[in-house]
Write a protein that binds this DNA or RNA. Structure first.
Lengths: 361, 361
DNA sequence: TTGTAAGCGTTATCAC
DNA sequence: GTGATAACGCTTACAA
């Protein structure tokens, strides 16, 4: 992993950009014997004004022959639209994001937009910086996957009139459009399954409550458990700063250290955390699910194949991405569109990591 | 994936101009009592001409007070640089790509560049279309993760003088810079481990040979096996069109159908394919590794936790991404830079999915 | 139906 | 040191 070797050169073909000057719209116009504006009208397909078919043909032929491709930057300067949008996420290596981004991109391409992506690593300052960068007229709108319940970036977007859709998470007041998973519903279903298996001592690894997902999952779990006469003792809840496996491991250690007896179940705020917790338990000699049950959320790839297969909650991430793109495109088309909240219903995936309650006290 | 040309112009979007007109450089100039060009000099920090400190201060204060942020599009039109680069991959939901993209983005942000991403779904036409879109002056250069051994996109980039670096894969002739994993080395190590465990009947699930990764892995495997007196019978090789789990499943079925006895080992071209094969074997009642061994490549997240843990080859993907970004930035700074090939050495990860040869014939 | 001309906001290149 | 001016390549009222 450390040993790199640089192989020197084959020979370079031609010098660089210095070469062929870009063919521009006036070149096409000259070749077709018309004015640049006519070329623009034809190639852009503006329907308000028609051009005669033969002129149009001549222009298209010339453009083709010269290999003309419009300079999108120049066009953007004039039209005030870059036909690209920004997507900001915490960490693209969190498996929950790629399917969402894929869904977004697919829909955007259909609409002729490009996608600019940015990772912020859970750093609010990086979130703000990324947003500023993107909205220096680089993008027409933003899809925000880092949204906090009260989010400075969202406020900034609102103040600056930047079209913005929140994906996966939402703000407290719903002043911007969002496409989210119904976390409460997912957690209710999970709580029901936990109660049905006779578990009484429930623990949770929760995440910062300024993210709607984290908050709704914790509250949903509490409410769901309460419906079956169960609760979460404060000693049985640990908060992690980031929702990854390493933090999950650490949190599980904390949980197990707090009391002599391990809990019956550890409910992870997401799959990565649950996997970290699972490893921590196994490292301490606790077998899952016979000694302890563990659950996650998101159903990321391969959690159905680990040992034991992880009980989790699944959702249609590409669909969530696609719908957020749709929503943003709607806002772009009509800035007066009211903020909308789209909830996508999740589905419980029962697997072996959630077993029957152990016969311990 | 192909039809993303023009959408009928619904209504000229008035991108984020909800109300407040953007403050522009002339506003700052007026507020500071200087000319716009002076503002530009100060804010941009061009060192060729010095501005008196108090004027500079006045300008910075005014800019701050007015909340001025330069219009990057307008600047790009003038400077001919957008300070963003494009990253093209087959499929961002393939876990091999996110760490690479993360490495690329980190390095780019440090250098003040943004990243535009695009997925092509293994479709050469989509690759070409994406490249054209991006290089309509939207990006200064491209990092290509879809590179084929002879690649029209690379040729196009060369002809058009678009700075381009290939990541993960490379072309046959090495006419463009590339940062790759040393697949042959990885496969040699794997072949050695296979031979050492007494396996004789080796099968492979290979991928299209127009990708350097696929070709080098297959050839590396062949060479590695040959070094131990083993070979790959043609009946024991299946090619998949895409390197995902579904195709791996299908390919394994094909392999198992071809002969009465299953092979001792199935070597997957990557982890996803190996996982699909593993599931297919298990579905047919073959236990891994007691009845059959299976190996992958890439060491994607969680393959160490599945049942059985997957033997695979790992590499430093963020490093590969970062180095490709470095290389592109170098080409951007000095277009005369010679094409360079960087090889990153991989490391074998021996896990339970590779066991001893079964005692069958 | 097509041409004319005025920008879009910034920066490079001159003057002064 | 600072200001004036002319692009950068394209789009779009408006004129013809």
């Amino acid at each position: 992993m450390t040993g790199h070797e640089n192989t020197p050169p084959t020979r370079r073909a031609a010098p660089h950009a210095a070469g062929a000057a870009r063919v521009k719209i006036t070149d096409v116009a000259a070749a077709a014997g018309v004015h640049a504006s006519t070329v623009s009208r034809v190639l852009r397909g503006t329907s308000d004004r028609r051009v005669s078919p033969d002129v149009a043909d001549r222009i298209r032929t010339a453009a083709e022959r010269l290999g003309y491709r419009p300079d999108v930057i120049a066009a953007s300067l004039r039209t005030r639209s870059t036909r690209s949008i920004g997507a900001i996420v915490h960490d693209i290596t969190d498996p929950v994001y790629p399917p969402i981004l894929r869904g977004i991109e697919t829909r955007l391409l259909e609409a002729g937009y490009m996608m600019v992506t940015g990772n912020t690593g859970y750093d609010p300052e990086a979130e703000a910086a990324m947003f500023e960068q993107m909205t220096s007229r680089l993008v027409d709108g933003v899809i925000l996957g880092t949204t906090r319940l009260t989010d400075p970036v969202v406020e900034r977007a609102l103040a600056a009139g930047v079209p913005l859709v929140s994906v996966l998470r939402r703000t407290a007041t719903g002043e911007c459009s969002a496409v989210v998973n119904d976390c409460a519903a997912g957690m209710h279903a999970l709580a029901q399954a936990i109660a049905a298996r006779g578990h009484r001592d429930i623990a949770a690894i929760a995440a910062p409550q300024d993210l709607s997902t984290a908050r709704e999952r914790l509250e949903g779990l509490r409410a769901g458990l309460a419906a079956h006469g169960l609760d979460l003792h404060p000693e049985r809840v640990v908060f992690v700063p980031r929702m990854d496996a390493e933090e999950g491991w650490r949190a599980a250690q904390t949980l197990l250290d707090r009391r002599a007896a391990p809990p019956h179940v550890i409910v992870g705020v997401n799959d990565l955390v649950a996997i970290g917790a699972l490893q921590a338990c196994q490292a301490r000699g606790l077998a899952c699910p016979s000694d302890i049950s563990i659950t996650g959320y998101n159903d990321i790839p391969l959690v159905d194949l680990i040992d034991p297969p992880l009980t989790t909650v699944t959702m249609d991430l590409p669909e969530i991405g696609a719908r957020s793109a749709d929503l943003l495109l709607t806002h772009l088309r009509d800035p007066a569109t009211e903020p909308t909240l789209v909830r996508v219903r999740p589905e419980l995936k029962l697997r072996a990591s959630l077993g029957a309650a152990p016969s311990r006290p």
